[in-house]
Write a protein that binds this DNA or RNA. Structure first.
Lengths: 138, 138
DNA sequence: ATAAAAGTTCAAGTCAACTTGAGGTCAAGC
DNA sequence: GCTTGACCTCAAGTTGACTTGAACTTTTAT
């Protein structure tokens, strides 16, 4: 397949495919002239990458999962990720319920509504970004 | 309260508080010399910001929610956001189950396992980033 | 044969949400 | 009165995941 076929089949733009190749996440099997040729497997690989991204893995982490013999994912880290997703699901569920409640609640201020306050506490537990400083200490 | 008290009570670094103020998300009520003074309300405001962030609103969107008379959130967009969260929750749930399954599955390749393949299809539906180009067209 | 369409490389730009750094100000404690 | 440490400002840097642009080469269609 050439790159356009892959873009059509995967929905990803060519620039992303080149970027992924450069990062070592996918490989092209050869060239015709300058043009990349991909084998059909690349689609499965891309699906797997989409999966991992959806589960919250970074591209670098995904790269580490791919051994020369194909994807081989450490089961322990899979389970850890599943647990992490579990926590996130609980948070999002609380938020969803809170949002629905807030939309119909007629307390004078949301801050006088116990449901809303509980929601705020849940929300407060969620950290969004790690300080840059800490990155290499972990 | 001075800024350090707010950082302690909210868990947010001073730099973030200044950044939020600059963005118009919070206000300091005055100064002592150069130093900002905050009133206690800022903590509720910060909790609300954390909530909205957790629900997936961007800081800009959050800014739009705050009218001069305090937060006033359009109920329709709250419900829309709740629906969006619902979809994300479903996705994450499918992924979590898929990850747990992948951890114990002993099919020779994950690609031969129907459960895993179903998971991949779910994952594929999730788009992570919008092309820059489209940004202003929306 | 020629021009358009599609592919290529490589460096630089984008975006959100902050953080960091340099250099300056000022209130409080000794 | 003087140091010290907390606070300030403002510009620039960071991160991840890409995208964009310029300049170039090839394939394909006429």
């Amino acid at each position: 397949m050439d790159i356009t076929e892959v873009t059509k089949a995967s929905g990803l733009p060519a620039s992303t495919l080149r970027f992924y190749e450069e990062k070592g996440l996918i490989r092209s099997t050869g060239r015709i002239g300058l043009r990349r040729i991909f084998s059909g497997d690349v689609l499965e690989r891309l699906a797997l990458i989409a999966l991992a991204r959806g589960a919250g893995f970074s591209l670098d982490q995904i790269g580490e999962m791919f051994t020369p013999e194909g994807p081989d994912i450490d089961r322990t880290s899979l389970l850890a990720k599943a647990d992490e997703l579990d926590r996130k699901i609980k948070e999002l569920t609380a938020m969803r319920d809170g949002l629905r409640h807030a939309a119909v609640c007629n307390a004078p201020s949301h801050f006088e509504c116990p449901k809303f306050l509980r929601l705020l506490r849940v929300a407060g537990k969620h950290r969004f970004r790690q300080p840059n400083k800490l990155k290499d200490k972990i």
